[in-house]
Design a protein around this nucleic acid. Structure first.
Lengths: 217, 217
DNA sequence: GTCTATACTTGGATAGAC
DNA sequence: GTCTATCCAAGTATAGAC
């Protein structure tokens, strides 16, 4: 009880602080960008001391990587739960639409895009960030394969390349919508994709419900 | 009056220096990223004095904006010349493919993506950068309209939204390919789009060759 | 127009008190 | 585990010599 010298409480406090710092780091990255994110600006936003960054994480960049990984886990949980079991195209697109809106609002994509930009300045971050992104490309590829299945489309355009394109598109839209200050363009794009999906849905469904392989090109 | 005492020579030297500085700024942005680009790092790369940045451009950010605008003009000239008159889909895609490869190699896209990231740290840059991007979205939209024309596709997906998506995709691919250190993914994606284009080309061509005006949705 | 020198500010990182 | 104090490196920007 209270704030006295209790071992498990002390450990708990340390963990809690770590999390506060990670939260503040992500917030600062969103608000100030990579170039504006320093141990001092993070500490100011989180209301703790600047030295804690180095005590808990060793360096600013290591903290930022921890923040990126944290955001990645949170989002992967949401995505898995929300789109992990959808098996038709229009459900997938509309789920992607609403989650992407949430990504934008909460700045999850921004944390990623700022870190990628930071990797130009600190190249040693590059491979570490790539490791955080790869699961997303795999996840996207899996979702596509599940929904599109084995149609003429996938023989012309392999799911892996579509996944790469979609992740790229998400990143690019994040950059542009932040810049233009209006996320309407991105959102109406999803509407367009939904209409496109409806156009092709019968074709995809019928081909897929046959349940079997098509030829590879 | 310096070494020649010739007025126009003096003016020429000043202009030449301005250009050297702009070149060095773009190079530094590519090599070090926004966070690593300072008056000092730019001057080191260009082999001139750090104070010249402030004499000629007033501030680092103003120099960087000048560099961005410069790169934009250079690339717009190339794009206009190369794809400005193409009127069928496969030519357009393969032209876009080779120019995008050049964009990557020479770091033109990188200058842009780094500046966009920098706008998070210096919000006053946002609108100025957006001004540089808008012409590209218009250009892309124009190219699409010219090539796709008035098909069922454009009624489902307006050219403006496709243009927004394509510019986003370019940006996103720039980020990812830099990070992964392999541009094969991006390049093979173009291959996929080319195959897709072939799939739809007959349909598009036949509809378009009927012929006429555009309608907005 | 270009360079040197310098004032001022911010940031990474550590030592040591609590 | 957290805070204060501090060192040092790097950056912006300006003044003034050439």
């Amino acid at each position: 009880m209270a704030k006295s010298g209790n071992k498990s409480r002390a450990r708990t406090d340390g963990e809690a602080t770590r999390e506060r710092i990670i939260e503040a780091a992500a917030d600062t990255l969103c608000a100030e960008g990579f170039a504006g994110t320093s141990a001092r600006s993070i500490a100011a936003k989180g209301g703790f001391n600047q030295a804690l960054v180095f005590y808990h994480f060793g360096s600013v960049n290591d903290l930022l990587m921890a923040a990126l990984a944290h955001v990645g886990h949170v989002r992967m949980a949401t995505y898995t739960e929300t789109v992990g079991n959808l098996d038709n195209l229009s459900d997938l697109v509309s789920a992607a639409r609403s989650i992407f809106a949430e990504d934008l609002d909460r700045g999850y994509m921004k944390v990623l895009s700022e870190m990628i930009s930071g990797a130009s300045t600190y190249p040693e971050l590059g491979p570490r960030i790539w490791q955080e992104i790869e699961p997303w490309i795999s996840f996207t590829k899996g979702s596509i394969s599940r929904v599109i299945g084995d149609t003429a489309l996938t023989s012309a355009v392999p799911a892996g390349e579509v996944a790469f394109a979609i992740v790229s598109l998400y990143l690019g839209m994040e950059l542009l919508t932040q810049l233009a200050g209006q996320r309407s363009s991105a959102d109406s794009l999803f509407g367009a994709v939904e209409r496109l999906g409806s156009l092709f849905a019968p074709f995809i469904q019928s081909t897929q419900s046959d349940g079997k392989g098509e030829q590879e090109t």
